[in-house]
């Protein structure tokens, strides 16, 4: 059941060039959210007819909900201006998230601000085997690495320009680890969030290896609760709603 909580901004800080951490005092949501679910934010400062904006959750702990977002358009530009102490209406918890445990080695693959739900996931999985693969165009797109380090997560990096980690796509270091796991006959699960190209690359690998793949889709949304049917993702079951049947889908269910 979704609630609409009037939260208060506890902090709002830069998370990198063009990226922001928004921390909200939202005790009801913080208690109920699980990794991979999203919240629907009524952005203050937009005219009242503008739609809400969906965000995945970076962290939900001790009465606070943390969002990690990139300023990309009108909605996030307005959101970037909210101040500590402002009230922000947040609806949630919404959608189906990631599973709460991983049978095999958890491999988390994130692109840019797609690492947001993977941080919440890593924190809840508490699995010492977890590896995060993170990619970006440059080192400026590598976010919250200190927060992953604090969780004890092994982090592997790739950037398109080689300014940090391996040069190229994040599938480079991922494939190296997959080869090793396969050689040792170990099972694994893939969890991913990021640009569509990355999601498809990860989903393809999960399906080909017959390993579980959990793909978090990012779609423009209207209602966020399954009422309007605007955020459709094609799946083997037809036109599924990203906001209800997703945003996390099984790799083998997605039709690209």
């Amino acid at each position: 059941m979704a609630i609409n909580e009037k939260s208060v901004v506890a902090s709002h800080e830069d998370a990198g060039p063009g990226y922001r951490f928004l921390v909200l005092e939202a005790p009801r949501l913080a208690a109920d959210l699980t990794p991979g679910q999203f919240v629907h934010v009524r952005v203050p400062g937009l005219e009242s007819t503008a739609l809400r904006r969906p965000f995945s959750v970076f962290d939900a702990d001790a009465g606070r909900v943390t969002l990690l977002y990139k300023v990309v358009g009108r909605g996030t530009a307005a959101l970037s201006k909210v101040l500590v102490g402002d009230t922000v209406e947040v609806m949630g918890p919404l959608g189906h998230g990631f599973p709460s445990s991983s049978k095999g080695v958890p491999l988390l693959v994130g692109g840019g601000y797609g690492v947001a739900p993977l941080h919440f996931l890593a924190k809840r999985l508490k699995d010492p085997r977890a590896i995060l693969f993170v990619g970006g165009r440059t080192k400026d797109d590598l976010l919250a690495l200190d927060r992953f380090a604090a969780l004890g997560v092994d982090v592997r990096i790739a950037t398109n320009d080689g300014s940090a980690g391996e040069k190229g796509f994040v599938t480079g270091p991922l494939d190296a680890v997959l080869d090793g796991l396969r050689a040792r006959g170990e099972t694994y699960e893939l969890f991913t969030c990021g640009p569509d190209g990355l999601l498809k690359a990860v989903a393809d690998r999960a399906v080909a290896a017959k390993m579980p793949g959990w793909i978090s889709m990012d779609r423009h949304m209207v209602c966020g609760v399954g009422a309007c049917y605007a955020c459709i993702q094609k799946t083997v079951r037809g036109n599924s709603r990203c906001c209800v049947e997703g945003p996390v889908f099984r790799a083998e269910d997605l039709v690209w």
Binding site: A50, C228, Y229, A230, I232
Partner: peptide
């Protein structure tokens, strides 16, 4: 939401566009 005799898939994506003061939709009665 609108119901017809048989299941109906609705339109392709994108199905909506935000405009000043409103919303334009073409969900297509999925």
């Amino acid at each position: 939401k609108g119901i017809r005799l048989d299941p109906w898939p609705g339109n392709q994506m994108p199905r909506h566009a935000e405009v000043p003061g409103g919303l334009v939709n073409a969900i297509g009665l999925q």
